[in-house]
Design a protein around this nucleic acid. Structure first.
Lengths: 166, 166
DNA sequence: GCTAGAAATGTGATATTATAACCTTTCATA
DNA sequence: TATGAAAGGTTATAATATCACATTTCTAGC
């Protein structure tokens, strides 16, 4: 993950989706839980796009797909997927995205969120980790978790502002 | 703001509070709005500590101080204070803090949030800006806003975990 | 002073996000 | 094939945030 990249609007998304779901099974084996039908369904809805979805968006989509699920169930599934690292939470949106790549666990992830199309890219930018470490050290802060999010326009939307959704 | 610092539990908080409120009047003159009684009240509650408070915490405190205010009014006051830069929003907590120092507008602020006592420190760490700029450039991302938050334990709580509130 | 328009706030209702409490089902394993 | 732990269902509710519209307050210009 040297460079963060926004997927082109016309990329082969089926491949992304498959990759995400394939990783899921093994991630659960490694982490010690089970990729249940519910969790897989929730992940599928998230992985179906590169956009951040709210928990209630997921509920609506599952419902549209013929499956009624209570909020608490979706939140539980999301919690589990977050723990296993298959999903990320975008704090500034109260929303979730499927993780589309493996991460170096020791590094925080920077999310780039497009305000126009809602697409989220992940970055493992090098210098970032060091700068954050310095800040923590200077403040004598015992670091637990890090939230790094940027909002703006992705390369595909920058030229044609006002557009919604690729 | 070279080094972020967590205020000592026994620091002269009256001074912090006064400083914050003094800045407020001039900040509004500069920005072109008015520091109304409501906005000052909200700011006062936030500036009364270095902890992040939820909007409803503010409502409760104002109520305890004898002033009943509707949620929408507090949110409007908070929006105004945020615009003027007197208050910051901590996304990972859905909470707000009074800004206790002037910032270089061109740089994002890193917040260090103590999980034990809730105190928030602000940092303008140097390298950070560059790393974020690189990430944006690499992704061809047109940057608008940045959310940088770290959670963990402040120096005062690290030694005595489990403690709540200085 | 008086008044028109803009800015701020009040009022009441409601939308959105998230969790609590308790019960039932599913599944791996002994 | 019983058993206990993990997962999920059901119902209710908490916590966070906003909408729509009426009223008040402030400022500027007369």
């Amino acid at each position: 993950m040297a460079k963060p990249r926004f997927p082109a609007p016309d990329h082969d998304h089926q491949a992304c989706l498959s990759a995400s779901l394939e990783r899921a099974e093994s991630a659960y084996v490694e982490a010690g839980g089970r990729l249940t039908e519910l969790r897989a369904s929730v992940l599928r809805e998230l992985a179906a796009s590169h956009q951040a979805l709210g928990a209630y968006d997921v509920i609506q989509r599952l419902s549209a797909a013929g499956r009624r699920v209570a909020p608490i169930s979706v939140y539980r599934a999301l919690d589990s997927l977050l723990e296993v690292g298959l999903v990320h939470r975008i704090e500034s949106r109260n929303a979730f995205i499927a993780c589309h790549e493996a991460h170096d666990e020791s590094r925080p992830i920077l999310f780039l969120v497009c305000d126009a199309c809602g697409t989220v890219a992940e970055s493992g930018e090098e210098g970032l980790n060091e700068a954050l470490g310095n800040a923590a050290r200077n403040a004598k802060f015992t670091l637990d978790d890090t939230v790094l999010e940027m909002t703006g326009l992705c390369e595909h939307c920058a030229g044609r502002e006002g557009t919604r959704g690729h």
